[in-house]
C-alpha cells in the first residue's frame, strides 16, 4: 500500500456507482450496529467552557468512512455541523510545513509528545519551543508561521486549506469564535509568554486571532472522513482530485497525529488503536488509515481526557475489527479494504 501514488479522481458514472456500492456495502451494517450499540453509552460530559459548546445535543452521533477512491460509507448524524476545535491543529501544522519548510517549523515548535494536558503552559527549557503542535501553545506558535500579506489574507488562506481537505465551502462559527476569543485568557497568556521568548513574531496577536478562528471552523463527521482520506491518499482529496498538501509533508503530519493527537491519551491510543488521529473538544475525531481511507466520528460527550467517548470506542472497535493498527505487520487495513470492496455476500 504505497501512499505516494494518489488514486486518480473518478468519473461521473464511477462516482454514481461508487455511491451505490457504498450504500450497499456490508461495512454499512458494521457502522449501523456500532452506532446502535454505542448510542446507549451516555457516559462523558459535553464541553462547557464556552456556552456555545454546552448547547450541543449529547445524543448526536455520526460515523463516516471515506476511502482513498472517494467512496463514503456513513451512518447517523454525519451532516450535523460542529466546530473543528483542536482537530484543526494537525491541518494547520501541515500548512505551516508547506509555507515555511520543515526546518523553519522545527525551529519554532518541537515534535515531542508531552504527558501534559492540552492547555498546559510548558515550554522546552533549553529551546523555549512548545513541545509539539498539538498542544495549545504549539498550535498557537504554528499559527504564527502561516503566510499572508495581512491578517485577512492569512485567514482566507487557512480557510481555503481546510476547504481543499473537505472538498466544499466551509465557514467560521462567529459566536464560537467570539466566545473563544473572549474567554481565551490562558491561550493569550501562552502567546505572550512565547512572544517574550522570541518564539512568536511581531504579529503574534493576529496569530492568536487566527488560532481562535481556526478552532471555530464548522465541519461535519463526513468532512472529517474526507479530510482523513485526503491525508491517507498522499495529500490529494479523493473526491475532488485537488491536492491539499504535498505527499512529503503528509508523513510529518501523520506521525504527530499518531504520537500527540489524542491529548494525554495519545500513548494508549497509539498502542490500542494504532491510527494517526486528532480529536477536538466539540466531540469530533478524525483518524487516518494510511493508503486506505479516513474515519470521521462526531459525538459531543467527552471523557476525562477531552476525547469523545463514543468516538474513541468507535475507532477502537473499527481498528480491532478490521485490523487497522498501522504497525500491525502484514495486514494493515487489508481487512477493511476487502470488506469495502466486497459485495454483501
Amino acid at each position: 500500500m504505497s501512499t505516494n501514488q494518489p488514486a486518480p479522481p473518478i468519473d461521473e458514472v464511477g462516482a454514481l456507482l461508487g455511491r451505490m456500492r457504498s450504500a450497499a456495502s456490508p461495512v454499512r451494517d458494521v457502522l449501523r450496529e456500532l452506532h446502535e450499540r454505542l448510542s446507549k453509552d451516555d457516559s462523558g460530559e459535553v464541553a462547557t467552557y464556552i456556552p456555545e459548546l454546552a448547547k450541543a445535543n449529547p445524543g448526536w452521533f455520526g460515523l463516516s468512512i471515506c476511502t482513498v477512491d472517494g467512496n463514503t460509507i456513513e451512518f447517523g448524524d454525519v451532516s450535523q455541523p460542529f466546530t473543528i476545535q483542536s482537530i484543526s491543529k494537525a491541518f494547520v501544522y501541515g500548512m505551516a510545513l508547506e509555507d515555511r519548510g520543515l526546518e523553519n517549523v522545527l525551529a519554532k515548535v518541537g515534535v515531542e509528545p508531552t504527558g501534559d494536558a492540552f492547555n498546559s503552559i510548558v515550554l522546552d527549557e533549553i529551546s523555549n519551543r512548545p513541545f509539539n503542535p498539538m498542544v495549545n501553545a504549539g498550535a498557537i506558535a504554528t499559527c504564527d508561521l502561516i503566510n499572508g500579506a495581512d491578517h485577512p489574507e492569512r485567514v482566507a488562506r487557512m480557510l481555503n486549506m481546510i476547504r481543499t481537505y473537505c472538498g466544499r465551502e466551509i465557514h467560521i462559527d462567529h459566536s464560537v469564535f467570539l466566545s473563544e476569543r473572549m474567554t481565551g485568557h490562558r491561550n493569550r497568556a501562552m502567546a505572550h509568554l512565547m512572544r517574550n521568548f522570541g518564539m512568536m513574531g511581531e504579529k503574534f496577536e493576529e496569530s492568536l486571532e487566527l488560532y481562535f478562528q481556526q478552532c471555530s471552523i464548522l465541519v461535519t463527521a463526513s468532512d472529517l472522513a474526507v479530510m482523513g482520506a485526503t491525508l491517507a491518499n498522499a495529500g490529494v482529496n479523493p473526491k475532488t482530485g485537488e491536492r491539499a498538501i504535498s505527499a512529503d509533508n503528509v508523513k510529518y503530519v501523520l506521525s504527530l497525529m499518531l504520537t500527540c493527537g489524542m491529548y494525554d491519551y495519545a500513548g494508549e491510543w497509539a498502542f490500542r488503536v494504532g491510527l494517526p488521529a486528532k480529536s477536538g473538544v466539540a466531540g469530533g475525531i478524525v483518524a487516518v488509515i494510511p493508503g486506505v481511507g479516513g474515519i470521521g466520528v462526531f459525538s459531543p460527550p467527552l471523557d476525562a481526557k477531552g476525547n469523545s467517548v463514543r468516538g474513541v470506542r468507535a475507532c477502537t472497535e473499527l481498528s480491532q475489527r478490521f485490523g487497522l493498527h498501522c504497525l500491525a505487520t502484514g495486514s494493515g487495513g487489508n481487512a477493511l479494504l476487502e470488506a469495502l470492496t466486497a459485495r454483501r455476500r
Binding site: 454514481l16 456507482l17 455511491r19 451505490m20 450504500a23 450497499a24 459485495r343 454483501r344 455476500r345
Partner: peptide, 12 residues
C-alpha cells in the same frame, strides 16, 4: 435511477 442501481448493487 438511484434505487434501481442500489437494487442491482445488492442483488444476487
Amino acid at each position: 435511477n438511484e434505487e434501481t442501481l442500489l437494487s442491482i448493487a445488492i442483488s444476487d
